[in-house]
């Protein structure tokens, strides 16, 4: 078991320090990309650490990195939703619009089971090359900008855009084939 999880289970505050050291920068990156604001991102990091501390126990995540990322993402999206309602823009709004063309909504697929769609996307991504899979997730899960993704993987921006476009099209075809109306 991960040492941090053990510390959380023992309610040892060392866990908070180690969480911050190990994941602080990662969480900040996620929050900043979604919110586009340093102060908000810093507050989200604090909220995330607090969230992890409160969630473990009872949760015992198998993959702590993914678990922390998820909490950071959810905290940031929650804050973004509040900000968007106050007419503030952020980096995450563009990727969300890009997704609109491939994922079901209440108008067209009110009965589609969300969990099942998530599972199918996972199956689809596993069939793709690692580069394609990671670029897709960096864009739509982590909300990286195209420029950041290009820098991260040493691609040109146009290559990243093309990869994303093709992956979105292929995913849409795959979901239709699996019976999910989009």
């Amino acid at each position: 078991m991960d040492r941090i999880i053990e510390l959380c289970n023992a309610r040892n505050e060392q866990a908070i320090r180690e969480l911050e050291e190990r994941f602080g920068r990662l969480c900040y990156g996620i929050a900043y990309r979604i919110l586009g604001n340093r102060e908000d991102a810093e507050e989200c990091v604090n909220d995330t650490l607090h969230g992890v501390w409160n969630a473990i126990p009872p949760a015992t995540p198998e993959n702590l990195t993914a678990f922390v990322c998820k909490i950071a993402r959810n905290q940031s999206l929650r804050r973004l939703e509040y900000q968007t309602s106050a007419k503030r823009s952020a980096e995450a709004t563009v990727p969300i619009e890009e997704l609109a063309e491939i994922l079901p909504d209440e108008r067209f697929a009110p009965d589609a089971e969300d969990g099942e769609v998530s599972r199918l996307i996972g199956v689809f991504l596993r069939k793709q090359k690692a580069d394609i899979r990671n670029v897709f997730l960096r864009r739509y899960w982590f909300f990286d900008s195209v420029a950041d993704i290009a820098k991260r993987y040493s691609f040109t921006e146009s290559k990243v855009k093309n990869m994303l476009l093709r992956t979105r099209r292929k995913l849409k075809e795959y979901l239709v084939k699996e019976g999910v109306e989009v």
Partner: peptide
């Protein structure tokens, strides 16, 4: 709400894929 639903669907993708993407970089030449 559509936006929320979409982000939730993507957000619930297999954790192992997320962890892989979180740590992924392309090694420089």
């Amino acid at each position: 709400m559509k936006t929320n639903r979409m982000t939730e669907i993507i957000g619930a993708i297999d954790e192992n894929l997320i962890a892989e993407a979180a740590q992924s970089t392309r090694k420089p030449r």
